[in-house]
Design a protein around this nucleic acid. Structure first.
Lengths: 362, 362
DNA sequence: TTGTAGGCGTTATCAG
DNA sequence: CTGATAACGCCTACAA
């Protein structure tokens, strides 16, 4: 409503010694003037160090740059040169600790490589996926790191990416031929199941968020069923989808059912991620049951609090930081011109054994 | 380790029907040409709807815009018009759940107002503060939301902000006259202490991250001491700074000492944030002590796992989402021209009572 | 009401 | 080796 004109209209505050308007950044023109050369020369000095320029001119430019504390405007560079040194990071749900952990690794890797991250959080709203990509593309991001919903109205196809490279994290999209980085779900699930069987558990229940077409959830579920099958008739296994919205009664019923089916054999839970683990822990508390006693437990993700609940929760720790870094590196390699076929990076998880999956209690 | 390859190398899809080069976005010139008008007219149609333009031309432009799915390039707009509709968000440590929670609220509010967030994570490295601001300023961000280290080599002064508005979150900086949003630390701490005293605790220990000049930590500490003092000789209180790096032995020693000092009176801990809570919980576990029995407990921040540890941890829940949103709103008001004196928004916390601070156990 | 021209800060091309 | 000059996509005087 009141678009203040910054500072007085004409009374330019003296400001720095440089003779620039206060608050205004030095431009390449200022440097050129100060050094007594053309803008082109300054630009060359900055970008094409290889073509030698006469030593005295180089020195003059260098001095002027230092004097004025000149920094090129990335915006102008982007407009002109086409590259923005910006990477668009779209995350399905910033509430999810997994997403944040990955984000952290990716952001760091980007910064180290001289890129800045533009963040867009979908807040689990699949319809915003397209919107997000378009918004980011508007800012000329050089590429995308996508940890999005696997499915939904706005499912991105390759075309929507405006021809820019992208790397998918954790969730793959059917039609997209891009690099993909994720936990090695199959191996991780196998490690979890085998560990439980070794510890004497015979009746297993895998609790997952609703599959809803999310690739990682499907992969883990399939791996779970495969593992159970691999153990023959000795071991039984079931899968239950548990939604966040459920009052929890459904989950409690599933746990009761699990023990009933187990009879005298030992029963254990596998949780599909940390959020599910939280819901299970709440259900266990309401039932008055204890991890490692009434039911064994192993969960995907290894949050800091895992060791503090009950006897400590056994988990499969994902190399989240490394996943994020790998994703960023993949993308940056593409930006540097790498043109190989889409790659898949499946990073190994680590089984962390704690009390919840302890061997038979007597 | 296993960069699997997949997909066909070179099958280029023809592209859209619009006649534009594949992957290239339509520019204002394209629209102008398609509508048979000048670029200026298109620009006016988009930005200054109020100045009427002849209906037929308006219709033609509108059609062309729709036809070409034209979207202005924010980059070019920023370069020309000076505003980028970008907000720079600098966060001290993205590992900290508090920061993330705030980030979430802020990001959402920004999006709702049509702004995009550029994220810079300091990774607790104070020296990068200046670097972060400069990088962001380079992209012409319209303003800053700062949740930074309170102190360090790169301590930002107002000048460093390049004349752009900023809002501080959680931590204030001495010399900066900007809006400030945070939890009402004094009231929150008072609620915590009073609750413990009501519950019969008489010997209190406040465990905080090293003060290190961080304003919020200092404020909470001061409030703790004030509360203890207000209760007279009945209640004793001490403060201990606990660094993340400590092996934990120091913390255990402090807990033992606390009980020793308490004698027959009941003793309780107050934790300065969720990270400290985690460390305390680990120490308690190592000591074999239980919350609500050997020691009472109330902690700042209310993570999802608080209810799952021991008998449930009593906490002070911060309105993190609202803090983030408020910060964004503050900033956006400034961007819209608001020119009042710096404001302070202190949002109330909520005491969540669980088992860890239960009344006397018999 | 509409069009023309100039500029925002860079980079790249093409002469000199 | 260096300097004009024309983009890049948009906005905004100023003219018509």
């Amino acid at each position: 409503m009141s678009p203040e004109s910054a500072g007085a209209p004409t009374a330019k505050t003296p400001g720095a010694v440089t003779g620039l308007a206060r608050g205004a950044r030095a431009t390449i023109a200022d440097v050129a003037r100060a050094a007594g050369v053309s803008k082109a020369t300054v630009s060359r000095f900055l970008n094409h160090r290889e073509r030698l320029l006469s030593p005295d001119i180089a020195a003059r430019v260098e001095a002027a740059v230092a004097q004025l504390a000149y920094t090129p405007s990335p915006m102008a560079q982007a407009l002109s040169h086409g590259r923005s040194r910006l990477i668009g990071l779209i995350v399905a749900d910033i509430t999810n600790p997994y997403s944040v952990a990955v984000l952290r690794g990716a952001e760091k890797a980007c910064q180290d490589a001289g890129y800045l991250v533009m963040l867009f959080n979908l807040g689990n709203d699949a319809d915003r996926e397209r919107e997000a990509i378009n918004a980011l593309a508007g800012y000329q991001v050089d590429g995308f790191i996508l940890n999005t919903l696997g499915r939904g109205a706005g499912l991105v196809d390759a075309e929507a990416l405006h021809g820019k490279p992208a790397v998918l994290v954790d969730r793959r999209h059917e039609g997209m031929h891009t690099d993909f980085v994720s936990l090695d779900n199959a191996s991780a699930m196998k490690a979890a199941c085998d560990h439980l069987v070794d510890a004497g558990y015979r009746e297993l229940l895998y609790v997952t968020d609703p599959l809803a077409g999310v690739s990682s959830r499907r992969e883990r579920t399939a791996a779970f069923e495969a593992c159970v099958a691999a153990h023959g008739k000795q071991v039984h296994g079931r899968v239950v989808e548990s939604a966040e919205e459920d009052a929890g009664e459904q989950l409690e019923a599933a746990l009761r059912d699990l023990r009933r089916r187990a009879g005298r054999r030992r029963a254990a839970l596998v949780a599909g991620n940390a959020l599910v683990t939280l819901r299970i822990a709440a259900a266990m508390a309401r039932l008055g049951w204890h991890f490692g006693e009434e039911l064994g437990f192993v969960g995907f993700d290894d949050p800091e609090w895992a060791s503090l609940i009950g006897p400590g929760l056994s988990t499969i720790a994902q190399p989240t930081d490394e996943i994020g870094r790998a994703a960023a590196r993949c993308l940056i390699e593409r930006l540097q011109g790498l043109d190989s076929a889409p790659r898949q990076l499946l990073l190994p998880g680590e089984l962390v054994v704690r009390g919840s999956s302890g061997a038979v209690k007597r």
